[in-house]
Structure formats: C-alpha cells, structure tokens
Design a protein around this nucleic acid. Sequence first.
DNA 1: GCAGTATCTAGTCAGTGACAAGTTGATGGT
DNA 2: ACCATCAACTTGTCACTGACTAGATACTGC
Lengths: 193, 193
Amino acid sequence: MSPSRKTYHHGDLRQSVLAAALDVIAAEGPGALSLRDLARRAGVSHAAPAHHFKDRTGLLTAIATEGYDLLAAALAGTPELRERGVRYVRFATEHPAHFQVMFQPDLLRADDPELLAAKERASAELRAGVAGLPDVPDARTAGIAAWSLAHGFATLVLTGNIEAALGDREPEDYFRSLTGLLFTGQLPQKDRS
Amino acid sequence: MSPSRKTYHHGDLRQSVLAAALDVIAAEGPGALSLRDLARRAGVSHAAPAHHFKDRTGLLTAIATEGYDLLAAALAGTPELRERGVRYVRFATEHPAHFQVMFQPDLLRADDPELLAAKERASAELRAGVAGLPDVPDARTAGIAAWSLAHGFATLVLTGNIEAALGDREPEDYFRSLTGLLFTGQLPQKDRS
DNA sequence: GCAGTATCTAGTCAGTGACAAGTTGATGGT
DNA sequence: ACCATCAACTTGTCACTGACTAGATACTGC
C-alpha cells in the first residue's frame, strides 16, 4: 500500500498479508498462494510474513479460523432453519476464499486450538438451527441433511458447476426457492421401487 | 515396483504414475503431490512423467477426467433418483482422490477437451436421474436440489466434518436413511417465521 | 534392417518454503 | 535517563519443486 515505507516496521503487516492472501485465493485458488509473493505485495522482506503466521499452513489456518467466526456471526440470531441455509449460502458467496480454505483440511493445522474453538462456535450455531424445529424425530440427522443441502449447493456454486441454472439470479435467492420446492412437498414424497 | 529395472522403458509409466498420484492425494491431499516424488516412486528420472502429462496441471486434469468417467459409470443404469444419490456418495468414498480433484477447478485445465467430454457424460447421467420423476414442476431445480444434497453430504464426509454423526455406519447407508427422512415427510413441511 | 517416433535421461534455471542469525524499534521497569 | 527485553523485520542460505531443453534409447511399421 504505502509506496515507499520509511518506517522499519510495517505497522499492520498481519492484516495486510491476510487481505492480500484472500484476494489471491479468491482469484486463483489456494494453490497459487505464495508467501514470498504476499511479502512483495506488502513491500516487506520475504521472511516477514513467517513471523506472524509461522508458515504457509499457519497462514491458511488463520484464514480458516477467521472464516468460522464470520460464519458463526452470519448465522447468529436467525430463528428459522431455512433462512439459516440462505445465510450459509450467502456467506460462501461473499467470502469464497474463507469458505474454500475452511473445507480443505489438508491445507490446515487441524489441531490448532484457535481453529478448533472457532469451529466449535460455528458448529453450535449450526446445531441451534434445528434445535427449535417441531416434531423432528431425529434432530441430528435432520441437521446434517440441512447442512448437506446448503453446503453442497454453496460448493457447486463456487466451483462453477451450476452457473447455467443460476442464470443471473443471486445464488441465495435460487437456494431460497429451491428449499421452498423441498419443504412444500412439490417434490415427490416418495419415488417408488 | 520392480526393484531394479533393466529395461530402459518403464513399460507402464502412465498408469504407474496415476496410481501413485491417487495414493498420495487420498492420503495427504493434492497439495502434497510432487511430480518428482512420483517419478522417484516409479523409479524413473524426474522429467519422465512430464512426457505423459505435460505438467502438474495436466496430471490432475487426467485424474479428473478419469473421475468423471468413473462417476458416469457408477450412476448408469440406476432407475431411482434416491439410489443414484446413494451411488454418488459411494463414488466419493470409494474414489476420494478423484472426487477431490474433480471439484477443485483451480487445479485443472478447465478447457481441456477430454475433461469437458467426460464431464458432459457424467452430467448427462445426473440429469437422467430426475428425468423420470413424476409430477415435478421444475425438474432442473429438483435436480440441483438432489445434486446439492448428495454432493454436500459427500463433501462433508470426505472433509471429516460429520464423523461423529456417522459413528461406524457406512456413509452411503447413513445417506440412504437421511433421504428417507426427507422424502417421507418426517421433516416439517414448512417451518415458518 | 532401417527410418521415424515414442519414451525416457541428464542438465539447468527460476521460484518457493523453511530456517538461522542478525538488525531495528518499541515498551516498560527502575 | 537508562537499559533490558521482546516483537517486528531483514539478510542469507538450503533443499526442493516445476518447467524447459537437448540428447540417448527402445519400439514399430515398412
């Protein structure tokens, strides 16, 4: 950002690197991420980012952690299950880089305490979505069904697999009508044999 | 495999590299894939794989292509939509490496003709699943709903996000009962406000 | 048995992640 | 006012990787 730094310290390197990383991931995927490139963009030496994130995995773990907190915040305070699904999809489209990294465990340090804590916060919000449902015999399975539907839809949107069906509609709107189709019985309740 | 080759030619390097690549990806993810490592495993020089796959992206594109054909074959000849979903999930658990690579577009050469052709063959099978459904007002949306559900479930299984709920049940069995829950109206048809 | 081609080797280059050791600047205690 | 301590950053280096080039070797059709 600052054209020619005069200070020895960058001042806000951590945030600067994080933001640049999100740009790169959203544009070209996590594979294109290079710590040295991020350092160049921030105008610091090649080893500077390592001080904040330890290594490449550390950076991606930090992004995933941030992602889970953003997701928890996005879901919080929504009473209805269906609308929670819509918000899940919206989160994925608004934060594609976070979403991708969160669900690619081989990029992350799976046992990182902060990551686990953030993941648990988001998980609690997901569970809260089905808790208030009336007359659900198996709440856990129902929750997983709902999660699968929203997650699958979001993933297919981000991977460009349903562009044709979307047309120019917003993914979250399409998802809302899709769930309407499911929950109002317009789908065959049972397709036999 | 062969402890000390005497022949100059490997004989089946392409298949050998592909198989080793699938092992690595299934065990450590696509990020851990190294052409040089694959060459070492096959006992050939570091540049030999490049002759068959051009570059890293080429190798992954070949894997994705193979994956789409395996998926099309797995889905073919199944009349019922629900059972197609089960087979989709089974494909993902039986071929986790293929599945991961197929849905990570940033790893692939998206415009590769063979990839596109294989993708279209699989896509046709997916569409065929909803074609025979009775009384579906919006077949396309219903198809995307079904695909989202199966894809989301498969993805969450592979990323280790629903291990706890699965217990020791096979993912495909769990998915079968999950869809039963949806299609027999045990879920509230509408949860409003 | 010969030409042409597919397969593989050997050598090289720039880019990368990780690490070690040193430099700069900020902070807080006395 | 001083200094110890620590965080933030730099410089230098190493092993490894993907990609490219030129050349050696084996197979195939004729």
